[in-house]
Each structure stands twice: as C-alpha cells, then as structure tokens.
Design a binder for these strands. Structure first.
Lengths: 203, 203
DNA sequence: CCGTTTGCATTGCAGTTGCAACGTAAACGC
DNA sequence: GCGTTTACGTTGCAACTGCAATGCAAACGG
C-alpha cells in the first residue's frame, strides 16, 4: 500500500472540523466545502474520506457519542474505587450537562443531531442501545442506593429525562448552570432522601 | 383596499404547510418553493406573505408555541374548576408530551426549532419568558400541593426538565408512551407522596 | 373610467449544494 | 523500470437555494 496515512486520524480531523462548524452555525451549515475550509484542507480530501455527506454525518454522530462516553468514564474513574451510588450518579449526570463552553459546544451538536435523527429513524436506532444501557446502569445504582417505595426502572427513566431536559434548557440559556445543578441535587434528594448537608451544598 | 383577503389566514395556511414539511423532513428541508408546493400555492405567494425565509421561520415558531399553549389551556379547562394541584400538573405535563402522532409531529418541529434557536440566540429570547412563566406556575402548584422539605422552585425546574427529557426520548422512540407516563407519575409520587392508588394506575 | 393599490405568478440571477470525473503525485510490489 | 494502488487536488455540472424584479389581473377610490 502506497502513501501510508493514518486513515482514522484524517477522519477524526475532518469530524472535528465538522463539529466546530455545527456548534457555531448549526448542522444545516455543514457542507463538504464548509467543513473542508474549517479543517484547512481541500474539499476533495473530505470527499476522499467520506464518500457521501451522510457518511460523514454518521461518523460525526458516533464521535459525539464516544466523547460523551469517554467523559463519563473518566469522571467516574476519578471518583476512586467503590464510590457511593448517589455520588456516582451525581458525578455521571453532572458530567453530561453542558456546564462549560466545551460541553456546551458538544451539546449544541448533540441537540442538532437529535433533531437530525428524529427525521431519519434508521440512524436513530444506534442511540436506542446507548439509552437502554444507560437506563439499566442508572436503575442498578438506584437499587444499590437502598431507595424504597420506588420502581428503580421508572426512577431511572425519570432521572435520565431530568438530565436531558436540564441540558436542553441550559443550552437555550433559560437558566444558569447553578440552577440546573441545584435542580439535579433536589432530584437526587427526592430519590435518596435529603443529604445530611455535608457543608457542600447549602441553599 | 382592493381584493380583500384574510392576511392571517393565508399566513396560517403557509405556516401549516411549513410545519408539515418540517415534521416530515426536518427544518433544513424548509425552503420557499418546498413549502409552497406543500401548501399547494406558488412560490411567489409564499414570498408575498413572508418577505424573507427568516420571517417565515419566526412566524412558524410562534405558531408552535401558540399551539402548545392552546393545548394546555384546553386540557386544563376540561378539568373543571378547582382541580387538585397534582392532577392539574399531571394533566398539563402529559398534554405537552408527544404521545400521539399529532403531538409527535409538533414535537419534531419544536425539537428542530430548539436546535435552530440554539445557534440564533436572538430568536431564543422569546422562549425564555415562556419557560419562566411556566416555571413560576409549576412552582406555585407545588407549593399549593403542600409538599414539604423541597424547594418549590428547584422542584419545578426538575419537573419541567423531566417533561422535556421524556419528550425528547419519546420522539427518538427510545421507549413507548406508557413508559414515559409511568415515569412522570413516579416523579409526581416522589414530589407529592405516593398516590393512594385509586384504581387508576396500578401495575 | 381611470389611477392606484393589492394579490399573486413568473422569471431571472447569483450563490451554494452534493457529487462524479479527471488529473497528478507519491509510495509500494515486482 | 513499471504497473498498480492510494492520496489527494481541481474542475464541472445539474440541482437547488433565497430573493429581487417584473408582469398582470382584480378591486377599489376618485
């Protein structure tokens, strides 16, 4: 094979540029030439690595998901071994919220893709498994948290929905990050019982 | 004035066609000619009533919001006078969920607009007031529901987020409507205390 | 009856889109 | 050395986009 080039690296480079364009101007501004310009390469090169636009989009969507997964696993690993279920949940969910500019940019792209896949059911299927896995994980944590009187599965659905909704409203700028975090904690209080207020979060 | 025509009616007709296009193929497929075709009129007519595409979009966004508001007030009015806070909340939130095909279509459009406005902060400002008003209303209901130990404002934020998140996942087809409704009820149980199970929702 | 205003259709235009086609240069097997 | 394969860059094209401009008919005021 001639001219050995790291195929994945190039694709990642292009997908990165795509993400930047999408975050700043929306998915509809994502075109071959536009992405190429943002990546500082020729349009032909983009076309070389992604034969169609749809292929490029699908790849970018996968990147978004991988980024989120990496973020979560990293945050969880930082908690050390055997953390309390509630702390683990809170860390995980807070990590998924668009609280800083980096995550806001990713969130905008994710939101755009959400609308994108809503019209392309075939692409959306990939997201189902992820949601299902996430729900199972959350339900398991709730179960381990010795919460009584609540169906863990349903509570997991609610909790994940809270996170998603908070993310949406944060992206829209409807309220500041602190409000979202406070609401998340209130939600966890409802589930696990009120915290003994360990000086960490008053008011 | 010659040739009297109901201006608002025409605009509504066009906006309706726009909604159909957006629900089926996404906002990016919304073009002057496309919408005109869907409305069964000429492209020139669309241009006559909306001088720019952005004007058309803004109008359509307003229509979506008005539809939701109308839906909610209608559902609430059907509850009769002085309904219990919890029942009122549940009715209102359930009405906003994309549970049937009609609301799913509207939801897809709303989701598309969400992503649309995420990149156009100027347009998003109109949504803030609506969210704030809704939050105030929900908080007031929670207060009236004699829920102790929870900050009504934060609980309202959480509750609205649950609704939004459930809507997103419903649109994505991640779970069936019953799951979303069950999660909503679980959430209300957490807030108001478990229902005395009035034969309505067991399982 | 005539001018003006309104409602709408058609056409034109510059810009952008995805994508195919073609070109070339480099690296490898032989 | 040569042919083949990979990695691009360039060009071309048909389709589409928003929008301005133009045309025309109908309805009204005068």
């Amino acid at each position: 094979m001639p001219k050995r080039v790291d195929h994945r690296e190039r694709r990642a480079l292009i997908a990165d540029a795509l993400m930047r364009v999408a975050a700043e101007q929306g998915l509809e501004a994502v075109s071959l030439r536009h992405v190429a310009a943002a990546a500082g390469v020729s349009a032909g090169m983009v076309q070389h690595y992604f034969r169609t636009r749809d292929e490029m989009m699908t790849f970018a969507l996968a990147v978004v998901r991988e980024r989120n997964e990496a973020r979560v696993t990293r945050a969880i690993r930082a908690l050390g071994a055997t953390p309390a279920p509630r702390a683990l949940l809170r860390t995980m969910l807070a990590e998924l919220l668009p609280l800083d500019e980096e995550r806001r940019a990713d969130g905008r792209v994710a939101l755009a893709f959400l609308a994108y896949t809503a019209v392309r059911p075939a692409v959306a299927a990939a997201l189902h498994d992820e949601t299902a896995a996430l729900l199972g994980f959350i339900a398991q944590l709730i179960r381990a948290g010795t919460v009584e009187g609540v169906d863990p599965e349903q509570a997991a659905v609610g909790l994940l929905a809270v996170m998603e909704g908070l993310g949406i409203y944060l992206l829209g700028g409807h309220y500041p990050p602190e409000t979202a975090l406070a609401a998340l904690d209130t939600q966890l209080d409802l589930l696990f019982g009120p915290e003994p207020s360990p000086a960490g979060r008053g008011r």
